[in-house]
Amino acid sequence: MFAALKAEFRKLFTVRTTYGITGIALFIVVLYSFYIEGIRAGNSAHLATKLASEVPGAIQAVSMLAALVAVLLMTHEYRYNTIMYTLTSARRRTTVLAAKIVTISTFALLFAVVVGSLAPAMAYLGMQIKGLDVAVQQFPWWDLAWQGAFYTWALSMFGLLFAALFRSQVASIVILFFAPGTLEALAGLLLKKNVMYLPFNALNQVLQAGTSVGPDRLSTGHAALLVLMYLVVGWTAAWALFVRRDAN
């Protein structure tokens, strides 16, 4: 397992796309948080939850890019046929899949920590440079940490899951970008209020801390559990296919 993990980390960090996509994500966070949420904060600087609100906002804005990195880690193997080396180097295919999940989980958590720390820091810096009076801030560390980390991790796991199921780079990226918005919105026309039980809808509810729970809204804990259930079912199917399918 250690050898497979080491190989997966090397795969992740020896291609330009990982750095390019991460760089774009950080650039967006810095630009948006510093300029829009900091320099141009205006009266919102007086809100006690101003900086805390930067975390879910930034996480939601750029976590899709972490998921894109996850898609590429898996689909590059099939696109460039390196999967044959990967599978013949490991004793079991399950080890390979587990190594990819652990690698992307680690990357997603680091990504969430950096984005979640950078966003309020940049907003604060922007407000300070602009000379705005920043209110005394309430910062629910624990909630922000687990919800932000869970959101990025789960979205990355969905990305990796689509890649494991479809193996095609284009198909995986299309599904990743269309499923949360377009597909679930269309499903919402049929499901009405039950749309909150769909995976990406539930995932979005994980980030909406403080919003009151109601008939069309799950608690963050329940939403996270529901997302986990989708991931467990999806990954069970992906694992069953991964260990049996031809490697091409």
Binding site: A7, R10, K11, T14, R16, H76, Y80
Partner: peptide, 15 residues
């Protein structure tokens, strides 16, 4: 069978 932008040396280091 290699990633086109991963250097030859890194390709082998992965393997």
């Amino acid at each position: 069978a290699f990633h086109p932008t991963r250097t030859a040396r890194n390709h082998l280091r992965v393997l």
